[in-house]
Nucleic acid binder design. Structure first.
Lengths: 155, 155
DNA sequence: GGAATTAGTGGGTCGCCACCCACTATAGGG
DNA sequence: CCCTATAGTGGGTGGCGACCCACTAATTCC
């Protein structure tokens, strides 16, 4: 029988825990992993959710504009949209003005799915942020949002 | 000439930005990516840094205990230690009491390397957390640390 | 109406990471 | 002693995400 390892033997190096970079990277990976795992159970990936959210928030997009907004490879976007369309979560229609373009729009089913995925994401959030009370979560969210904004436009 | 996309066309969906899960995952990925990129320039990976940090903080380990502490696959650990030893950053010695075990210890060069890597990590931190003032960074660090602790022992 | 450009698609590659298996060497229990 | 368990190693696999290239269809510019 393997002896129970003492808790100290499992402790992570303080040198790493002092590094914001490390904590962000590690916690982010956990969050990503847990969400991805829930999506996988539904046959989805993070990009699917991102596309649904973009369509819900900003209305129908040309595929090219989704690419622009989300920063995904055009070729990969084609595959994501393909899958979402096959499942009936989005609708693809040729743009009549410029028939090269494919306009992508959310369906009712897609909207419903997105709501479920948001619930999943919030469930993961509750797991991950369990140690924090609501006010602390609000503060964290606010700080992260500002960091994200910095990353978006600062490059 | 491609027309400058309006900023709005680049904005991420609020639905996603509202999700702590999403922000953590996205920012964490950026942090991880930037640090990994700096390490790659030196021919290193994140695990190398983690091993160096563990040895610096807790002294020499049997390889098996490093595996335990860092939660890496034993086989992968062998490769990491191998590389670090080849570069002179750690020293491997057979444990005389139990000759199956390999004791891994940090060398002077390893300690110096770790200091440099910490500096890299802090540089990344300065980039990523640029929008936050020192006090806000302190708060963020503190919140993240508690989250991390919750993940460690809460499972 | 030909040339150059753009939107979308299909079919790959590459690197990373986690994981797993087979094997050797050593240790320890009956 | 033999049998089982443990420490470490080498090699390989599979998933995934990012990226890239070649190609078609449609448009625009001259």
């Amino acid at each position: 029988m393997a002896p129970e390892p003492s808790p100290a033997a499992r402790a992570l190096p303080p040198t790493l825990l002092d590094l914001g970079t490390y904590l962000l990277s590690r916690i982010g990976k956990t969050a990503r992993g847990r969400l991805a795992e829930r999506l996988t159970r539904r046959g989805l990936r993070l990009w699917d959710m991102a596309v649904l959210a973009a369509l819900a928030d900003f209305g129908p997009h040309a595929q090219r504009d989704l690419v622009q907004r989300l920063g995904i490879d055009p070729s990969d976007m084609a595959k994501v949209v393909d899958q979402l369309a096959a499942a009936g979560h989005v609708e693809r229609t040729r743009d009549q003005a410029d028939r090269r373009r494919v306009s992508v729009a959310l369906t009712g089913a897609g909207r419903a799915l997105l709501a479920e995925l948001e619930a999943e994401a919030r469930a993961v959030q509750d797991e991950v942020l369990a140690p924090l009370d609501p006010e602390e979560r609000r503060v964290l969210q606010e700080l992260l949002l500002r960091v994200q904004r910095g990353l978006s436009d600062g490059g």
